[in-house]
């Protein structure tokens, strides 16, 4: 059974430029793998930077450097947050490879991250997404910051997703696919960043 939230579109991976990195379950500690998130996010941002440079024309070199550096920071932030979430919520007892994919288009950049989660995580996650899509994201962002600061702090507050929407104008959508054997749900989050 498939359920989508937001404007989820199936990406045809063979179109245009794309990059996919896979993370197999392993016996390495989360701490070790966590450090790889930054490296992978750097790699993705650098990969994108090379394509982005070609798009800039007739811009002052100093200004160009600032624009490129800021776009690279945005790509790194989004990639890193998505990887951190995939690591946090991935069900590691299953032989399922979590993946992050980046597709490049003329006017946009699309990230797709797939991982599998435990059945008991599905409903709370879907409730959080519904809330995110129905409420004013800015209000929810500040409400979450404040409630985290005043003691409801947890690693599942969704602050990273809210910051992508509010600070980076990212468009988010999700696909949940229930698999029978083993009984697990595969979640794909799609994050679209428009390139100006």
């Amino acid at each position: 059974m498939i359920k989508t939230f937001g404007e989820f579109i199936e990406i045809q991976p063979k179109q245009g430029e794309y990059l996919t990195i896979g993370f197999s379950p392993s016996c390495r500690s989360l701490k070790e793998r966590w450090q790889n998130n930054g490296l992978s996010a750097d790699f993705i941002a650098e990969y994108f930077r090379v394509f982005f440079i070609g798009k800039l024309a007739n811009i002052d070199p100093d200004e160009e450097e600032i624009i490129i550096s800021n776009v690279k920071d945005s790509v790194k932030y989004v990639a890193n947050e998505l990887l951190e979430n995939a690591m946090k919520f991935q069900n590691e007892s299953l032989p399922f490879t979590a993946k992050i994919g980046l597709s490049l288009y003329d006017d946009k950049l699309v990230f797709c991250v797939t991982n599998c989660i435990d059945e008991q995580q599905v409903e709370p996650f879907q409730e959080f997404i519904k809330n995110l899509l129905n409420e004013d994201p800015q209000e929810l962002y500040f409400k979450t910051m404040r409630s985290n600061a005043l003691g409801d702090d947890n690693n599942r507050s969704g602050l990273g997703l809210l910051s992508m929407i509010c600070d980076y104008s990212a468009k988010l959508s999700w696909k949940f696919e229930a698999i029978q054997t083993p009984p697990v749900t595969v979640v794909t989050i799609m994050v679209l960043l428009e390139i100006h």
Binding site: Y77, E84, R146, S163
Partner: peptide
Amino acid sequence: KFLNSSGINMMTRFIIN
């Protein structure tokens, strides 16, 4: 150079405190 969302969370906790 870089701050992840948990770092943003830490800063908001500091400011509010």
